[in-house]
Design a protein around this nucleic acid. Structure first.
Lengths: 111, 111
DNA sequence: TGAATATTTAACCATCTGGTTAAGTATGTA
DNA sequence: TACATACTTAACCAGATGGTTAAATATTCA
């Protein structure tokens, strides 16, 4: 699951789509408009996001409405936070401190 | 930068490498051992992580030692958290609440 | 010097990715 | 019915990705 979530987030077009969606549900054509690419291209991106469960799709007649789904993002956030905190705590606390006080001298940090 | 970070994190082998690294600096051979793949394959993964600046490499003679670098992860965490909070706040606050109290009934949540 | 160790580079391969255009499927509207 | 609209599917393409094996490059050790 994390594979798909991170892979989905790795593409800037898809991140922008999510950003637009964060302002409310949108149909495919609306979401495609600000992106300089064809509709099928956007359609593919939407399917990637859908497979990653970052959005849910509902059909109202011929219009498809997308809705954000926060759950996988929560999982991703947890993974990132866990490791970030862990190794900032264990390895980089000194480096980070030095980083704040002296832009140079953190190179000899841990080991 | 986010592109590379998320792309790097999308591969399970690379996530496992980071997990091992979180327990301390490691050389290439050590990092390769638990993965059922060739050394060049691991070497490639390390280069991907290095390009994403998720790790720094230092050469001690013929041994390359890897060290975690938390900065890009912090950026990624910020991106994820920003959007997660935003749309949980706007759309999924109710769903999230229901999630805590009743494992089932959040399906009809927003909209 | 010569052999072993640590690692990368090169060449190759199959599959995935992100885009295209053209055609197809539903649905709404005149 | 016929046309327009919303969207997907199909076929294709170039380039990236994730793996392989074989060979090259340092470095250490005897």
């Amino acid at each position: 699951m994390l594979n798909r979530t991170f892979a989905a987030l790795a593409d800037p077009t898809r991140r922008r789509i999510l950003e637009h969606l964060a302002r409310g549900d949108r149909c495919v054509t609306d979401l495609a408009r600000p992106h300089a690419m064809s509709l099928p291209a956007v359609s593919k991106h939407l399917r990637v996001l859908e497979k990653a469960r970052l959005l849910r799709r509902r059909r109202y007649g011929r219009v498809h409405e997308m809705q954000l789904e926060a759950k996988p993002l929560k999982q991703a956030a947890q993974w990132v936070e866990e490791y970030r905190k862990f190794w900032e705590g264990s390895l980089d606390r000194l480096a980070e401190y030095l980083d704040k006080t002296n832009k140079q001298s953190q190179k000899k940090g841990a080991k």
